[in-house]
Computed example of a mutant assay.
Amino acid sequence: MTVHPAGQSIRSTPEGLLWEPSERWVRGRKGDVTVVDSRHPVLVWEPGVPVPLYAFPREEVREDLLRPAERPPVGSHTGSHVFYDLAIGGVVVENAAWTFPADDLAGHIAFEWFRHWDSGLDHWYEEEEEIFIHPRDPHKRVDALPSGRHVQVEVGGLLVADTHRPVLLYETSLPTRYYIPREDVRLDLFEPTDHSTGCPYKGTARYWTWTGPGDVPRNIVWSYPDPLPPVAAVQGLLAFYNEAVDITVDGERRTRPVTPFTDGLKV
């Protein structure tokens, strides 16, 4: 196995994959069993997928727990070659791992994380920190900055938030999100739901949905009650999907962006 030094430019394969060696120590567990223990992982970006995944040298994977998949999926993962089921203690996790046919990634095995809840491992760690949802992208940055800007939010033409003390969250490849103190939001026009989402950069969010008139998507307001330390400034504040509401900043109406979340905002 050739160990590439970290920090080199991202490489591409004829199949359209992008990949980059990493020096992070990555471990994956199913229950109490360590399935992956790698000091030479490779980050892989598939075409059209905004988040990376890891592939690991075979010698750093418990291959004795893998067996050829009985029902391999069709069209799942870019140019995927061989799928494996994971068998531990009588429990079989179908299509938990696979290989890419790309020559650059020969000898590596990739694993599902949390995008498919029934096919991934239970716990992943980078060094000693547990990582949730998907691997963190080393080329992505998230900054939460307190601001004195004047931010107003309208839903269906009704002013529902008005503040001069927002926290602006800048996240690579996404529109700026405006986090607003609860006292500056007409939260009486919304009701909490049981919806939640997770983010490896920010934590777990809870949601509210619009109770007023008009065709407004559900769960357009969210908050992080216990955010991860790098974005602690947004704790308890409320944010709105720019894609579904009208936001004015310092008197300038912002255009509603089109993002990977747009199609998922259903009325």
Rank of each mutant, 00 (worst) to 15 (best):
R206D: 11
E252N: 04
G48Y: 05
R27E: 01
P21F: 13
P47V: 02
D188T: 07
V185N: 03
A161S: 02
V160C: 08
P101Q: 02
D246R: 09
R29Y: 12
I88W: 09
T209G: 02
G148L: 14
A110I: 10
G203A: 00
F114H: 12
H150A: 15
P101Y: 00
V49A: 03
A96Y: 08
A69L: 12
L187T: 00
G89M: 05
E60L: 11
T163C: 05
H150K: 13
V267N: 11
H164D: 13
R256G: 14
P192W: 05
Q235N: 06
L174F: 01
F56S: 05
E70K: 13
L159G: 08
D188S: 07
L159D: 03
I220C: 07
E15K: 08
P260S: 02
V153H: 00
I133P: 06
F132S: 04
H164G: 09
F83W: 15
F190W: 11
Q8P: 00
T197L: 07
L169P: 12
D122K: 01
S147V: 14
T259D: 06
D250P: 02
E70T: 11
E154S: 14
P217F: 03
V51T: 05
E94H: 14
G264Y: 09
V49Q: 04
P5A: 08
K202V: 02
R24G: 06
Y224G: 00
Y201G: 00
I131Q: 10
K266P: 05
E20S: 08
E154K: 13
E243K: 10
A233E: 15
P101N: 05
H108P: 09
F190A: 10
A244Q: 02
T211E: 05
V51R: 05
Y179N: 10
E63R: 10
L158V: 13
G212N: 08
R27V: 04
W45H: 00
W208P: 02
G31F: 03
R71E: 14
R254Q: 15
P72I: 05
E129N: 01
L228M: 12
D122C: 07
E60M: 04
S80F: 13
R62W: 03
L66I: 09
L17S: 09
K30D: 04
N242M: 10
D143C: 08
V267F: 03
A6M: 02
I247W: 11
D103T: 12
R11Y: 01
